[in-house]
Every structure is written in structure tokens, then in C-alpha cells.
Amino acid sequence: MQTDEQNRRPSALVRHRLSLIAAAAILAYAAFVHYVWGWGSIVVEWQAIGYGTVAAVIGLLVSTYFVRAWRLYDYFPRETSGRFVELFHLAQVHNLLNIMLPFRSGETSFPLLMRSEFSVPLLHGTSALLVMRLLDLHALLAAGGLGLVLASEAKLLPVVVWLAFLVAPIPAFLLKGPVLAALRPRLRGKLARILDGIVDGLPVDLAALLRAWLATVINWGAKVLVFAWALGLMGVTPLSATFGGALGGELSSVLPFHAPAGVGTYSAGIVAGAVSLGAPTGRAAMDTLARASINMHLMIILSALTGTALSLGLNELRRLRAGR
């Protein structure tokens, strides 16, 4: 006969729902990659690049996922305190769904998962996600702007404009108080509650915004450097084009025009970014660039799969230690 405590305990399916989603996503993605490219052809391509190089790139990319998880951990301190492994697991599932689903529809999984796993209200989670995506886009545009500044002949005006853009999140955040003070008296009932929910998802103070911004810069800075290094090893030249390709690919991943798994759009972003910053357009050079862009995209996919599998293993170890 079951006790009241056993009756109140969630079923195994509910307790392991996130792990089941992660496992299903990994299997679906592995099958998708095999269908589109074939794992055999991927192995041949990566043998030419060097397995050590591929492993290093994937390992460095996976390490940036911990930075992204820490940004969430710091952003939701009350809800996630002492639960970093669970949050890392959630972040990897969200990342994989975001890459897999078209038109950024995977983003909707974040507030839903945060509500399910950490009891974060939907508006709070959605508002926080919007802030983080704006910081992501700002960091990428700032990195791209730096490339334009370095390539320009007249330096003073471009540098001033770039610096103004770089610090733009600070005055934008400081305007929050006056804007809310003007809005609140005009709203009543449900609209006022919606506004409160949105505000609840914004950084609590300037220090919190700066920590989130710093984590964003470290994350994207590391990713762009790794991508540029990998593209250079795959024959993309000159150096400016490798950074252009890295930025182009990542910009395609944060903008709404995103095919399922980024097929076509991610590689096109790499090619467009590389050419815009000096990659030669001869036939041989474009063939090299096209092949490198596809391989880079595959490394992104495999790093997402690896990160999700790692988070799944860490989360199950945590469960075992907790006796759940």
C-alpha cells in the first residue's frame, strides 16, 4: 500500500521529462545529420582536417556552454541557487531545440522549460530571454563593427561611433526607470500585471546587467575566435575573412531567418561574412570556403549534441547521488 508521500511524488515520466526530451532530441538530430550529409562523408572530411583539430574545436565550443549557463545562473539567483547542473541541462536542451527548429521557434522552449523546472513565471522567463538575445545581438554587431573600424581609412569617427554603440546598453538600461514611471500610471488591471511581469524579467540593477553583458562578451568572443581559427585551418584566407565568416554564421543563427538545423542559412552566413571582409571570390577559393562553411556548421551541430549529452550525463549523476 502506497503512503501519502509516495502518492504525492511525481511519476518517473514527469521527474525525467527534461532528460527524455534531451535524449529524443539527440537521437532525432543524429538521424537528421545522417539523412542530410551522411556520417560516413563527415568522417572523411574531418579526417582531412585532422581529428585532433575537430576535437579541439568541439571541446572549446562546449566550454562556452558553461559560460552561457553561468549567465542564466546569475540572472535567476533566487530560482536556481544550488542547481547549476540542472540549469546547465536545461540550457543545453534549449540550445539543441533552438538549432533544430526553424525561424527561432525553439526559443519558445526556454520560458516553458524555466517554468516547468524552476517555477519561473512565463513573462519573467520571456522578458529575460529577450534581454539576453538583445545582448547576444549587440555583442555580435559590436564585434562586426570592430572589423569595419579596423578596415576603415579614417579612424576617429568610426572609433567614436563604435564606442558609443559598445556602451549603448548602459544608457538604455538607465532609461528604464523614467520609461516605467511614465507607463505605470497609464496602465490598469491586466495590462499593469503584464508590465510587472516583463519588468520582473529585466536585470535587477546595473551591476546585474554588466555581469550578464560581460558573460555575453566572453561567450561570443571565445566562439568567434574559435570559429576564425578553425576556418583558417580549413584554408579560408585572409585573417579578416575568417572573422567575417565566424560573425556571418553566428549572425545567421540569432536572426529570425533560420532554416531547420540551420541547413543552408548558417553556411550561407559564413560565406557572405567571409566575402564581405576580403575572402577571394575565385572558383577554387569559393570551393574551399563552401566546404569550410559546411564543416563548420557540422562542428556546431556536433558540439550542441555533445553539450546536451554531457548535460544529460551530469544530470543523471546528480540524480543518482541524490537517490532520486
Rank of each mutant, 00 (worst) to 15 (best):
2 Q>F: 06
5 E>T: 09
7 N>T: 01
8 R>N: 12
9 R>A: 11
11 S>R: 15
12 A>W: 15
12 A>V: 11
13 L>C: 01
17 R>C: 04
18 L>N: 11
20 L>N: 04
25 A>V: 02
31 A>R: 05
32 F>G: 01
33 V>L: 13
38 G>K: 13
42 I>M: 12
45 E>K: 06
45 E>A: 09
45 E>D: 14
46 W>Q: 05
55 A>Q: 05
55 A>M: 11
61 L>G: 01
66 F>D: 09
66 F>I: 11
76 F>Y: 14
77 P>Q: 14
77 P>Y: 14
78 R>Y: 04
79 E>G: 01
82 G>F: 11
82 G>L: 14
83 R>A: 11
83 R>F: 09
88 F>K: 12
89 H>Q: 08
93 V>D: 13
99 I>S: 14
104 R>P: 00
109 S>W: 08
110 F>Y: 14
124 H>Y: 13
125 G>E: 08
127 S>D: 04
128 A>M: 06
133 R>K: 12
135 L>T: 01
136 D>R: 07
136 D>L: 06
137 L>M: 14
138 H>V: 01
141 L>S: 04
147 G>N: 02
148 L>I: 03
149 V>F: 12
150 L>S: 02
157 L>S: 03
158 P>W: 07
159 V>F: 10
160 V>A: 15
167 V>T: 05
168 A>Q: 05
168 A>Y: 10
169 P>F: 08
171 P>W: 12
171 P>G: 02
176 K>Q: 13
180 L>G: 08
185 P>R: 13
189 G>V: 05
191 L>G: 02
192 A>V: 02
193 R>K: 13
195 L>T: 07
199 V>A: 15
200 D>L: 06
208 A>F: 05
214 L>M: 06
215 A>V: 00
216 T>S: 13
219 N>W: 08
221 G>L: 09
222 A>P: 00
225 L>H: 00
225 L>E: 03
236 V>Y: 14
239 L>C: 03
241 A>W: 15
241 A>C: 06
244 G>N: 08
245 G>P: 01
245 G>A: 07
247 L>S: 02
249 G>I: 03
251 L>V: 02
254 V>M: 04
257 F>K: 08
259 A>G: 00
262 G>H: 06
262 G>D: 11
265 T>D: 03
268 A>F: 07
270 I>V: 15
271 V>C: 04
276 S>G: 06
277 L>C: 02
278 G>A: 04
279 A>P: 00
280 P>M: 05
280 P>R: 04
281 T>S: 10
281 T>P: 00
282 G>D: 14
285 A>T: 09
297 H>Q: 08
302 L>F: 12
302 L>Y: 03
308 T>Y: 07
309 A>E: 13
310 L>F: 15
311 S>G: 15
312 L>F: 11
313 G>M: 10
313 G>A: 11
314 L>W: 10
316 E>T: 06
318 R>W: 04
318 R>I: 00
321 R>K: 05
323 G>V: 04
324 R>S: 09
